[in-house]
Amino acid sequence: MGEIEVTALKGVNLQIRKNEYVAIMGPSGSGKSTLMNILGCLDTPTSGEYLFNNVDVSSLNDDELSAMRNREIGFVFQTFNLLPRMSSLHNVELPLMYAGVNKQERKDRAVNALERVGLADRMHHKPSELSGGQRQRVAVARALVTNPGILLADEPTGALDSKTGDEIMALFDELHNEGNTIIVITHEKEIAEYAQRTIFLKDGNIFSDEPNSIRNK
Protein backbone atom coordinates (compact mmCIF):
# COMPACT_ATOMS: atom_id res chain seq x y z
CA MET A 1 0.00 0.00 0.00
CA GLY A 2 1.33 3.35 -0.97
CA GLU A 3 4.07 1.56 -2.81
CA ILE A 4 4.39 1.98 -6.50
CA GLU A 5 5.09 -1.20 -8.33
CA VAL A 6 8.07 -0.79 -10.58
CA THR A 7 8.71 -3.34 -13.25
CA ALA A 8 12.43 -3.89 -13.27
CA LEU A 9 12.52 -6.83 -15.64
CA LYS A 10 10.04 -7.25 -18.45
CA GLY A 11 10.62 -10.05 -20.87
CA VAL A 12 13.88 -11.67 -19.93
CA ASN A 13 14.33 -15.11 -21.37
CA LEU A 14 17.69 -16.75 -20.98
CA GLN A 15 19.37 -20.01 -20.30
CA ILE A 16 22.71 -20.52 -18.61
CA ARG A 17 24.42 -23.89 -18.90
CA LYS A 18 26.64 -25.69 -16.49
CA ASN A 19 30.26 -24.48 -16.53
CA GLU A 20 29.34 -21.38 -18.48
CA TYR A 21 31.05 -18.09 -17.63
CA VAL A 22 28.56 -15.29 -18.17
CA ALA A 23 28.82 -11.55 -17.67
CA ILE A 24 25.69 -9.49 -17.19
CA MET A 25 26.10 -5.83 -18.10
CA GLY A 26 23.92 -2.82 -18.33
CA PRO A 27 23.55 0.77 -17.14
CA SER A 28 22.07 1.44 -13.73
CA GLY A 29 18.31 0.94 -13.70
CA SER A 30 18.57 -1.67 -16.42
CA GLY A 31 17.46 -4.48 -14.08
CA LYS A 32 20.87 -6.02 -13.42
CA SER A 33 20.42 -6.17 -9.69
CA THR A 34 16.92 -7.56 -9.93
CA LEU A 35 18.14 -10.26 -12.28
CA MET A 36 20.95 -11.07 -9.89
CA ASN A 37 18.56 -11.26 -6.93
CA ILE A 38 16.36 -13.66 -8.82
CA LEU A 39 19.30 -15.76 -10.02
CA GLY A 40 20.69 -15.75 -6.47
CA CYS A 41 17.37 -16.90 -4.98
CA LEU A 42 17.25 -13.76 -2.86
CA ASP A 43 14.00 -12.79 -4.51
CA THR A 44 11.34 -14.49 -6.58
CA PRO A 45 9.85 -13.06 -9.79
CA THR A 46 6.30 -11.65 -9.59
CA SER A 47 5.50 -13.58 -12.70
CA GLY A 48 7.39 -15.96 -14.88
CA GLU A 49 9.56 -18.93 -14.05
CA TYR A 50 13.09 -19.52 -12.86
CA LEU A 51 14.15 -23.10 -13.26
CA PHE A 52 17.29 -24.12 -11.44
CA ASN A 53 18.33 -27.69 -12.23
CA ASN A 54 14.70 -28.23 -13.17
CA VAL A 55 13.47 -26.89 -9.81
CA ASP A 56 10.95 -24.05 -10.07
CA VAL A 57 12.48 -21.53 -7.69
CA SER A 58 9.47 -19.21 -7.82
CA SER A 59 7.40 -21.82 -6.02
CA LEU A 60 9.81 -22.26 -3.08
CA ASN A 61 9.05 -20.97 0.38
CA ASP A 62 11.43 -18.91 2.48
CA ASP A 63 13.19 -21.84 4.14
CA GLU A 64 13.60 -23.64 0.84
CA LEU A 65 15.04 -20.49 -0.70
CA SER A 66 17.49 -20.28 2.19
CA ALA A 67 18.53 -23.88 1.63
CA MET A 68 18.89 -23.18 -2.09
CA ARG A 69 21.14 -20.18 -1.46
CA ASN A 70 23.09 -22.21 1.00
CA ARG A 71 23.76 -25.16 -1.26
CA GLU A 72 23.62 -23.85 -4.81
CA ILE A 73 24.62 -20.19 -4.80
CA GLY A 74 27.98 -18.76 -3.88
CA PHE A 75 27.80 -14.99 -3.54
CA VAL A 76 30.70 -12.64 -4.06
CA PHE A 77 29.83 -9.02 -3.35
CA GLN A 78 31.42 -5.75 -4.31
CA THR A 79 31.93 -4.82 -0.67
CA PHE A 80 33.02 -8.35 0.34
CA ASN A 81 30.39 -8.55 3.08
CA LEU A 82 32.47 -10.54 5.52
CA LEU A 83 31.47 -10.58 9.18
CA PRO A 84 33.99 -8.22 10.77
CA ARG A 85 34.38 -9.84 14.19
CA MET A 86 35.25 -13.27 12.91
CA SER A 87 38.42 -14.78 11.55
CA SER A 88 38.63 -15.63 7.84
CA LEU A 89 38.30 -19.29 8.71
CA HIS A 90 35.14 -18.72 10.71
CA ASN A 91 33.69 -16.58 7.93
CA VAL A 92 34.30 -19.36 5.43
CA GLU A 93 32.86 -21.96 7.80
CA LEU A 94 29.63 -20.05 8.22
CA PRO A 95 27.69 -21.42 5.19
CA LEU A 96 28.61 -24.95 6.27
CA MET A 97 27.26 -24.26 9.71
CA TYR A 98 23.90 -23.32 8.26
CA ALA A 99 24.11 -26.46 6.15
CA GLY A 100 24.44 -28.48 9.34
CA VAL A 101 27.93 -29.81 8.64
CA ASN A 102 29.76 -31.00 11.73
CA LYS A 103 32.54 -29.02 13.30
CA GLN A 104 35.57 -31.00 12.13
CA GLU A 105 34.40 -31.35 8.53
CA ARG A 106 33.45 -27.69 8.52
CA LYS A 107 36.95 -26.72 9.47
CA ASP A 108 38.63 -29.07 6.98
CA ARG A 109 36.51 -27.83 4.12
CA ALA A 110 36.99 -24.19 5.06
CA VAL A 111 40.75 -24.66 5.20
CA ASN A 112 40.62 -26.30 1.77
CA ALA A 113 38.62 -23.45 0.32
CA LEU A 114 41.07 -20.93 1.74
CA GLU A 115 43.93 -22.92 0.25
CA ARG A 116 42.23 -22.80 -3.11
CA VAL A 117 42.17 -19.00 -3.06
CA GLY A 118 45.74 -18.92 -1.76
CA LEU A 119 44.98 -17.60 1.72
CA ALA A 120 45.62 -20.60 3.95
CA ASP A 121 48.25 -18.60 5.85
CA ARG A 122 45.76 -15.88 6.74
CA MET A 123 42.96 -18.00 8.07
CA HIS A 124 43.14 -16.69 11.62
CA HIS A 125 43.15 -13.06 10.57
CA LYS A 126 40.09 -10.94 10.86
CA PRO A 127 38.87 -9.08 7.75
CA SER A 128 40.17 -5.79 9.15
CA GLU A 129 43.66 -7.28 9.16
CA LEU A 130 43.51 -8.15 5.46
CA SER A 131 43.91 -6.11 2.30
CA GLY A 132 40.97 -5.57 -0.06
CA GLY A 133 42.13 -8.26 -2.45
CA GLN A 134 42.64 -10.71 0.38
CA ARG A 135 39.19 -9.97 1.75
CA GLN A 136 37.68 -10.64 -1.62
CA ARG A 137 39.57 -13.93 -1.76
CA VAL A 138 38.10 -14.87 1.61
CA ALA A 139 34.67 -13.99 0.20
CA VAL A 140 35.35 -16.21 -2.81
CA ALA A 141 36.44 -19.02 -0.50
CA ARG A 142 33.20 -18.60 1.44
CA ALA A 143 31.25 -18.74 -1.83
CA LEU A 144 33.05 -21.90 -2.92
CA VAL A 145 33.03 -23.82 0.32
CA THR A 146 29.64 -25.46 -0.24
CA ASN A 147 30.50 -26.43 -3.84
CA PRO A 148 27.60 -24.39 -5.19
CA GLY A 149 26.05 -24.73 -8.64
CA ILE A 150 26.66 -21.07 -9.43
CA LEU A 151 29.25 -18.55 -8.35
CA LEU A 152 27.37 -15.28 -8.47
CA ALA A 153 29.59 -12.21 -8.35
CA ASP A 154 28.18 -8.71 -8.07
CA GLU A 155 30.80 -6.16 -9.17
CA PRO A 156 33.54 -8.30 -7.61
CA THR A 157 36.30 -5.85 -8.50
CA GLY A 158 34.34 -2.68 -7.84
CA ALA A 159 36.11 -1.93 -4.57
CA LEU A 160 39.56 -3.04 -5.68
CA ASP A 161 42.38 -1.36 -7.58
CA SER A 162 42.89 -2.65 -11.09
CA LYS A 163 45.88 -4.86 -10.28
CA THR A 164 44.07 -6.61 -7.42
CA GLY A 165 40.96 -6.73 -9.58
CA ASP A 166 42.90 -8.55 -12.28
CA GLU A 167 44.12 -11.05 -9.70
CA ILE A 168 40.56 -11.78 -8.60
CA MET A 169 39.47 -12.18 -12.22
CA ALA A 170 42.39 -14.53 -12.79
CA LEU A 171 41.12 -16.54 -9.84
CA PHE A 172 37.68 -16.66 -11.45
CA ASP A 173 39.28 -17.92 -14.66
CA GLU A 174 40.94 -20.67 -12.70
CA LEU A 175 37.68 -21.62 -11.01
CA HIS A 176 35.93 -21.66 -14.35
CA ASN A 177 38.58 -23.98 -15.73
CA GLU A 178 37.97 -26.24 -12.74
CA GLY A 179 34.37 -26.62 -13.88
CA ASN A 180 32.47 -23.94 -11.96
CA THR A 181 29.57 -21.98 -13.40
CA ILE A 182 30.22 -18.26 -12.98
CA ILE A 183 27.93 -15.30 -13.39
CA VAL A 184 29.50 -11.87 -13.05
CA ILE A 185 27.44 -8.72 -12.87
CA THR A 186 29.45 -5.70 -13.87
CA HIS A 187 29.32 -2.43 -15.67
CA GLU A 188 32.96 -2.59 -16.71
CA LYS A 189 33.64 -3.83 -20.16
CA GLU A 190 37.13 -5.08 -19.27
CA ILE A 191 35.69 -7.29 -16.56
CA ALA A 192 32.93 -8.59 -18.82
CA GLU A 193 35.58 -9.57 -21.34
CA TYR A 194 36.82 -12.29 -19.01
CA ALA A 195 33.55 -14.14 -19.59
CA GLN A 196 32.62 -16.38 -22.50
CA ARG A 197 29.31 -14.65 -23.02
CA THR A 198 27.96 -11.20 -22.30
CA ILE A 199 24.31 -10.43 -21.68
CA PHE A 200 23.55 -6.73 -22.01
CA LEU A 201 20.42 -5.48 -20.27
CA LYS A 202 18.60 -2.26 -21.06
CA ASP A 203 15.32 -1.08 -19.53
CA GLY A 204 14.50 -4.50 -18.19
CA ASN A 205 15.03 -6.30 -21.44
CA ILE A 206 17.87 -8.25 -22.93
CA PHE A 207 19.48 -5.84 -25.38
CA SER A 208 22.11 -8.26 -26.59
CA ASP A 209 23.32 -11.74 -25.70
CA GLU A 210 26.50 -12.67 -27.49
CA PRO A 211 29.53 -14.87 -27.10
CA ASN A 212 32.72 -12.94 -26.38
CA SER A 213 34.90 -12.92 -29.45
CA ILE A 214 38.17 -12.20 -27.67
CA ARG A 215 37.62 -14.91 -25.18
CA ASN A 216 36.53 -17.56 -27.59
CA LYS A 217 39.43 -17.14 -29.94
Partner: peptide
Protein backbone atom coordinates in the same frame (compact mmCIF):
# COMPACT_ATOMS: atom_id res chain seq x y z
CA UNK B 1 21.06 -5.35 9.61
CA UNK B 2 23.91 -5.96 7.21
CA UNK B 3 25.19 -8.93 9.17
CA UNK B 4 21.71 -10.39 9.12
CA UNK B 5 21.57 -9.85 5.36
CA UNK B 6 24.92 -11.59 4.86
CA UNK B 7 23.88 -14.53 7.00
CA UNK B 8 20.61 -14.82 5.11
CA UNK B 9 22.40 -14.66 1.74
CA UNK B 10 24.70 -17.53 2.63
CA UNK B 11 21.82 -19.70 3.73
CA UNK B 12 20.57 -18.80 7.23
CA UNK B 13 16.87 -19.45 7.62
CA UNK B 14 14.57 -17.04 9.41
CA UNK B 15 14.52 -19.40 12.35
CA UNK B 16 18.34 -19.37 12.49
Amino acid sequence: TREIGIRRAIGARKSD
